[in-house]
Design a protein around this nucleic acid. Structure first.
Lengths: 149, 149
DNA sequence: AAAAATATAATTGCACACAATTTAATTGTT
DNA sequence: AACAATTAAATTGTGTGCAATTATATTTTT
């Protein structure tokens, strides 16, 4: 009796973890956009600002290490942030290879405006705090495993 | 006594759910790359193939609906897939606006080679099946909430 | 000290994502 | 039938991500 060839389960979208991860990450960045537009920041730039607010003067290598990104992504983006007047890109005095990143006054002042962002996002994501913690933890586990393995 | 101004907790990277989600998704796509290179596919194209293996002849709108992507992303990518010889892009006969997507023989045959991909990824991600289910479920919840809210 | 090795960014080239707009076809409305 | 409204893709323009390469500075080795 003829058998309709079926797609193996492992190749079905709805069976995979990766697809929801990918879609949720896209949706998350999309949701940030209208909020961050008011600060003239992209989501990536918002991440950079958060790092700099805590570690002003950090260099590109350290920044890349924290964000899991390389200079191919960071350099052009940092130039755009410099053009916006949020960041200064200085050469290291001791070592001319390194590029140090400093907040401008405008960059520092942006922090206050940014305070509204997390709560505005919280409104869009009505997930229970417990679930948020789980999601965070599982993503961190996955990230670690991929980075190491 | 002078107080060192501290970054509010909500603006700290390590407090946020979104950053691990974003980083894990990036890392996941990165991990797929060397595997998918052998099939001459990107991760997005791999997603499209999975949809088509199950639903040959689907149109761009339906595809976009399944993948949460729009024609701005899909159209150029589908042209690349057509150029590779995996997909045919036909106009709908009844409605000339819609673009229907058909697998070529090469596209259909790629399925067999793709069978090794999920298990190769499984080796990179040594997460317990239980955790994978949780992660999947939480991402789906988040996605739904963002899409609706 | 000169040469080789290493380290840090920058550059190049390609493929997404996505908002906004445009084009073309279809449907509905007078 | 003519016109307006709607729909489906395509197009345009910007900003990532990232592999691979290059440029430059520093460190190590000879």
């Amino acid at each position: 009796m003829p058998v309709k060839s079926t797609l193996p389960q492992v190749l079905k979208l709805e069976k995979q973890v990766c697809f929801p991860l990918y879609s949720a990450a896209n949706a998350m960045v999309r949701a940030y956009r209208p909020l961050l537009d008011k600060l003239d920041l992209t989501y990536l730039q918002y991440l950079v600002m958060m790092v700099l607010w805590e570690n002003d003067g950090i260099n590109v290598k350290e920044l890349g290490h924290r964000l899991y990104l390389d200079s191919g992504t960071l350099t052009p983006m940092l130039k755009r942030m410099e053009a916006k007047g949020y960041v200064l890109r200085k050469r290291g005095e001791a070592d001319e290879r390194v590029r140090e990143l400093y907040l401008t006054e405008a960059g520092k002042q942006l922090q206050e405006k940014a305070l509204s962002i997390p709560e505005a996002m919280a409104c869009k994501v009505a997930m229970a705090p417990e679930e948020q913690k789980q999601l965070k933890s599982l993503c961190e586990t996955l990230l670690t495993q991929i980075e190491e393995g």
